[in-house]
């Protein structure tokens, strides 16, 4: 069994081993600390000054990463908590992303900004957000997110191959969960990964009642809901988990589902889900029987106290209720 944090750690080790151009920067990433979530453990010991613990300077480290990338290297920048990527917004949006195009010719900026995101850990309003939505629709910028299905090494290779800056979200609740292996989720569900999209299905169900689209951090809550929906409500769902959030890759199989539901942990309003629906509506217009259901966290700050936080963020029961209601 490999935990997601270990898997990411191995992927970074392999990447830095095979590609001497890769540099990694971030607060407290060096050994023995190895990063706030231990994802960079061992890297500084092994790769010396290609790995640097930085001052508390999110804006500047994103800019330094962009500079390394501009000068022909590849850079991975860790933002300790995704919330603080707000401090790097200018460097990412107005420099890194724009520079790939604003000089009238393609300028490669192979930069990956890793952002540990999400809540359900009681860290409070400034350490729990899922800020993906703030970066959607920025020309030149791609958004990816870790999932428990995707090989992180392949995702890093894919992001660097774009030659343009990418944000890579890693939901903190995933770190201690295991990577799924061998196509099996559990006794009920099987999965396959095709390109950017992981697809989780019930054996033998070709036309699910509902297809649920989620980002990596929502996977376990969606699976919990799917299990309840099947066993308690006799509703068969399949799950689509794109590792690339924006631009959205082709999501397979949706025409055969009776309903589509997009679930995310970002706060309500201007959401990733709305963007997914925008992309899907023209494609599915003739087969859709009802509007796509969009579920997100409440239009709210994320409280520190767990009993309040639970109410704000999306929980399995809410997914289940929304799907039951939509199909009733």
């Amino acid at each position: 069994m490999t935990r997601v944090s270990e898997h990411l750690n191995h992927a970074l080790h392999d990447l830095m081993e095979t590609d001497p151009d890769v540099h990694l920067l971030g607060e407290d990433v060096s050994d023995p600390y190895g990063g706030a979530f231990k994802v960079t453990r061992g890297l500084s010991t092994r790769f010396g000054d290609r790995v640097r613990s930085t001052p508390l300077s999110e804006g500047a480290i994103a800019g330094v990463g962009a500079g390394l990338a501009l000068a022909g290297r590849k850079a991975i920048v860790e933002i300790m908590f995704a919330d603080f990527v707000a401090l790097a917004f200018d460097q990412i949006v107005n420099f890194a992303a724009k520079s790939t195009a604003m000089y009238g010719r393609p300028v490669p900026i192979p930069l990956v900004v890793r952002c540990p995101s999400g809540g359900n850990r009681g860290y409070g309003p400034t350490h729990s957000q899922s800020p993906q939505k703030h970066f959607i629709g920025v020309p030149g910028l791609s958004l990816f997110e870790m999932t428990p299905f995707h090989n992180a090494g392949e995702l890093f290779a894919r992001m660097f191959a774009l030659g343009r800056p990418c944000l890579f979200f890693e939901d903190k609740v995933l770190y201690t969960r295991r990577m799924y292996e061998g196509g099996v989720v559990d006794d009920l569900f099987r999965y396959e990964v095709a390109g950017d999209v992981a697809r989780v299905r019930l054996d033998g169900v070709a036309e699910p009642d509902c297809a649920i689209v989620v980002h990596g951090g929502m996977v376990h809550r969606a699976l919990d809901a799917m299990r309840l929906l099947l066993l308690e409500d006799d509703i068969a769902c399949e799950l689509l988990v794109p590792a690339r959030l924006h631009p959205l890759p082709e999501l397979p199989g949706l025409e055969r589902a009776r309903h589509v539901c997009v679930v995310e942990d970002g706060s309500e309003g201007g959401t990733w889900g709305a963007e997914v629906a925008r992309v899907l509506h023209p494609r599915l217009w003739s087969s859709l029987r009802r509007p796509i259901t969009l579920l997100s966290a409440a239009d709210s700050v994320i409280p520190a106290a767990p009993h309040l936080e639970r109410e704000v963020l999306v929980q399995p029961a809410r997914i289940r209720d929304a799907i039951v209601e939509a199909l009733s």
Binding site: Y123, G124, P125, T126, V301, P303, A304, A305, L308
Partner: peptide
């Protein structure tokens, strides 16, 4: 996050 919290338990420690 208990009754009598200074900020209703929303802010927490920080």
């Amino acid at each position: 996050g208990r009754e009598g919290a200074l900020c209703a338990g929303v802010g927490g420690s920080q």
